[in-house]
Design a binder for these strands. Structure first.
Lengths: 120, 120
DNA sequence: AAGCTAATACTAATGAATTAGTATTACAAC
DNA sequence: GTTGTAATACTAATTCATTAGTATTAGCTT
């Protein structure tokens, strides 16, 4: 899967939140300063060429929706990140967060349960 | 902290591995095709301007070393990632990995111990 | 000290991502 | 059916990242 550039990814995030949207609806989701409508339209078209979006035509306007799910993309993106920062080791990534104390004991217990139940 | 571009980050990764290095030593660490010596020198200079590297002069040549540690940078980079993909929730990121079953039971136990011992 | 070598400095060119203008189109309202 | 509106299409310009050329410099060798 192609890695998305920054702005492309912001736009995909907006679509993933909204599910289905007109370009008009995407713009408010983007961080300030808001880009020009046509800038977004261009990126959306590129995203469609890349296979990330598809559209239905409603009268005169296009209603776009994601063709690739956030989860699918995350899977690839995180794989890259783990390979880049953590030498391809998921445990060493988790150890990093452990050291950073970003996870509370309660959360930890919940996660352990979640992981174990997923394994069954 | 500034987010590094792809090549900049590759170069920083090389410095983080080597600790201290001449430009000459960085090049073999980079993925093929190896960039031109001067291309690397330019990026290294930019990285120095951005505060990621510093150097000592040894006779006629510069010996560069990281001013910002890999851990420091990771902390920021991962913060961005978690905010971007996981709505600022570290637990929800971990849940994602749990679902992906990237973590074995043994690894999980080790991590739980690691996290708990860090908390003391 | 003149010439050789290996480094850095400076800078122009390329390429990718992004922006936004102008042109075009389709439909709706009158 | 002409006009107005709001969308998309096309494309030129800008910006940022990256590359690599040429120029310069410092020190070593003779």
């Amino acid at each position: 899967m192609v890695k998305l550039a920054k702005r492309e990814e912001q736009i995909m995030q907006a679509f993933w939140s909204l599910g289905k949207a007109y370009i008009k609806e995407i713009i408010p989701e983007l961080p300030d300063p808001k880009p020009h409508y046509n800038s977004v339209a261009t990126m959306v078209k590129i995203l469609e060429e890349k296979g990330f979006l598809d559209h239905e035509t409603v009268g005169n306007i296009y209603n776009y929706y994601p063709k690739i799910s956030r989860e699918e993309y995350q899977k690839h993106a995180m794989k890259d990140i783990v390979s880049q920062y953590f030498n391809n080791s998921y445990p060493s990534m988790l150890a990093f967060f452990a050291k950073e104390e970003k996870i509370s004991d309660t959360e930890l217990d919940e996660l352990v349960n979640l992981i174990k139940s997923n394994k069954k």
